[in-house]
Design a protein around this nucleic acid. Structure first.
Length: 274
DNA sequence: ATGCAGTCCTGTAAGC
DNA sequence: TGCTTACAGGACTGCA
């Protein structure tokens, strides 16, 4: 389940392997992804050189020398890697970009096909597309708008944290981790938070995400970085996936509850409902 | 406008 | 042992 730390790791891995490299060919799989690949994009991309690799929320943006942008979302099981061109092709491979020189290729693999790769003509269209749906990055979230979004809503905290327009890049794992760190119950309504609690949550989101980035994200099932390496933060999780285990703070048993349609893991003692 | 449920998709695991 | 069923969840649609 790639969230911000996993996507950031992919981008950091891909950057040195991709920037300055030219696309020599594009192979498209039979089965369509969440958003279909336009047949004109392949020929357009041949001969183009990657100039920059960056991330916004859970989205990857690869810039090309003709100003176009390849915009990628990994969905749940997406893997975006640079691999040895001679290595065996894995199953569920949907897109393959041969790199000039013939030694390596950029591969998009996605068993559940929740992900997507699209080509945008320029920066302005990418800003329109992503800007419309994404809120601030989790680091240094502007205090006032964040407090207004939370305290002005009757939605529960879990739903608010999963909403990409509130904070970009948080998914189910890091929402649970941030709520645990801030000692807040997932069903607590935004409007029931004190300003002190809002601030604590704001800092918890930033801290948790930064620590996960430092550990190259969490590999629960499918996730791998841009060079195929697994993450390590799964060993540091305090709430997510720890149902029945002891709370690292108080020793109580971690509970799971369905909140906002997602499994939500929390400590019933440290994180009191309010 | 707002918030929620349903949808997509398939590998894995639990249940009978 | 082999089949069926439930579950995982990011983004999006449609409904109340």
């Amino acid at each position: 389940m790639p969230e911000l730390p996993e996507v950031e790791t992919v981008v950091r891995d891909l950057r040195p392997l991709l920037v300055g490299r030219t696309i020599a060919g594009v192979e498209v799989g039979e089965r369509k992804l969440r958003r279909p690949w336009n047949a004109t994009w392949g020929p357009t991309l041949v001969g183009r050189t990657f100039t920059l690799a960056r991330r916004r929320g859970k989205w990857i943006v690869l810039e090309l020398d003709d100003d176009r942008r390849m915009v990628v979302h990994l969905g749940m099981t997406g893997q975006f890697t640079v691999a040895d061109a001679m290595s065996e092709r894995p199953d569920h491979l949907h897109l393959c970009f041969a790199l000039q020189g013939g030694d390596a290729e950029l591969r998009y693999r996605d068993s559940r096909r929740f992900g997507s790769i699209e080509l945008f003509p320029d920066e302005a269209t990418v800003v329109d597309y992503l800007g419309a749906k994404l809120g601030p990055e989790p680091f240094d979230i502007p205090t006032k708008p964040f407090a207004a979004a939370l305290q002005g809503s009757s939605r529960n905290l879990k739903a608010l944290l999963l909403d990409q327009s509130v904070v970009a890049g948080v998914g189910n794992i890091y929402a649970d981790e941030a709520l645990f760190a801030a000692k807040l119950h997932p069903t607590t309504r935004g409007c029931d938070l004190t300003s002190r609690q809002v601030n604590k949550l704001r800092e918890a989101i930033s801290t948790v995400i930064l620590k996960a980035v430092a550990s190259r994200g969490s590999t629960i099932r499918d996730y791998v970085g841009g060079s195929g390496l697994r993450g390590e933060y799964q060993h540091e999780l305090t709430a997510y996936g720890r149902t029945g285990e002891a709370c690292v703070r108080c020793g109580a048993v971690i509970t799971v509850l369905r909140v906002a349609g997602r499994s939500s893991h929390f400590c019933p003692v440290c994180q009191k409902a309010q």
